[in-house]
Design a binder for these strands. Sequence first.
DNA 1: GTCTATACCGAGATAGAC
DNA 2: GTCTATCTCGGTATAGAC
Lengths: 201, 201
Amino acid sequence: MAGRTGRRAGKPDTRESILAAARTVFAERGFDGASIRAIAAGAGVDPALVHHYFGTKDQLFLAAMNSPVDPRELLPQVLDGDPGEVGTRLVRTFLGIWDSPAGSAAVALLRSGLTNEWTARLLREFLTTQVIRRVLQHLDLDPVEAPLRGSLVASQMIGLAMMRYVIRLEPVASVPAETLVGTVGPTVQRYLTGDLPAGPA
Amino acid sequence: MAGRTGRRAGKPDTRESILAAARTVFAERGFDGASIRAIAAGAGVDPALVHHYFGTKDQLFLAAMNSPVDPRELLPQVLDGDPGEVGTRLVRTFLGIWDSPAGSAAVALLRSGLTNEWTARLLREFLTTQVIRRVLQHLDLDPVEAPLRGSLVASQMIGLAMMRYVIRLEPVASVPAETLVGTVGPTVQRYLTGDLPAGPA
DNA sequence: GTCTATACCGAGATAGAC
DNA sequence: GTCTATCTCGGTATAGAC
């Protein structure tokens, strides 16, 4: 998001368009299914260029995933306000990401996290260290049941994303976002702050 | 289980062992990631044999998925009993599938449903026509909000499966099944029969 | 019936010409 | 800096020898 270096040599935006095409193709086909050739074609450049700018396919994937979404910018709007409504705000913000341009990176991460072991690890660590942990830290929770609460929240959110953006199961796939905020928000709230039957045991 | 082929008498159960290996490999790597070679190696046979018994890779996948799980056998134990506890029983039965031998087929379907379009379609149709529809039919629900209820249930269940069996996010990945029954059961129950804020509108 | 050998394709990656 | 040509590898699938 930061500094365009202001240099405009001959064609400086090929690098950017490769990144954009990479995000699209990775999102559509997952990491393994995406080919450098398809990405190059999407960007309108030669496949060798892709290797020239970013080294291996792994590095390209990381470059495509790194830029677009930074949880630290979004979390305040989730955490500020009534703690009793944090579930609702979390779902709303979450859905907002997927409907934004950054959403394709999210789909890519999710799609790729299933065939490939190291992308799964990437997704897992992103969830735990970047998102769940920060939310839990902000609320005052019993530290023994906090991890379970966190992963329950993650399971509901990821399931929602899967159904709405990957599997595309109707009607969840096309219902207005606010409908989902209203229906699954309370679920998330209960996972975070409600009673968990098998909590401390 | 992997029979040493010291004996090559007539025609042993090579066909069955190919199917078993196929389920395992498909579950580990997804449809695209699984190779006929790997499956053949897992079964201890020649790759050409796989083609000989089942034609193409698509047909092999279908054959591997077809046999193992039949929702019609399991649904009665979900639907019979107190309607107020159907969510709990649904989660319990659902988790039971994944922990059984048939679970590898389920993981395979889920993993494959993300890279590949026709396997996604397979998964979607399995969910809608085989599972969700039957559960909804059994309960008496407003027909306009029933589909939304169904896909909300599916999103929570699939998310749970993703976290526990694919992404393996702790602690959901290793917590006892009954803990999850107790915690997400009420969520499913609410999606099925509870108030949905944005229901009829 | 079983497996060896291979055809054929498309992937990622590299060397070097313009 | 950009692209052409090519190397190598691993995939599915098939033909045909034992």
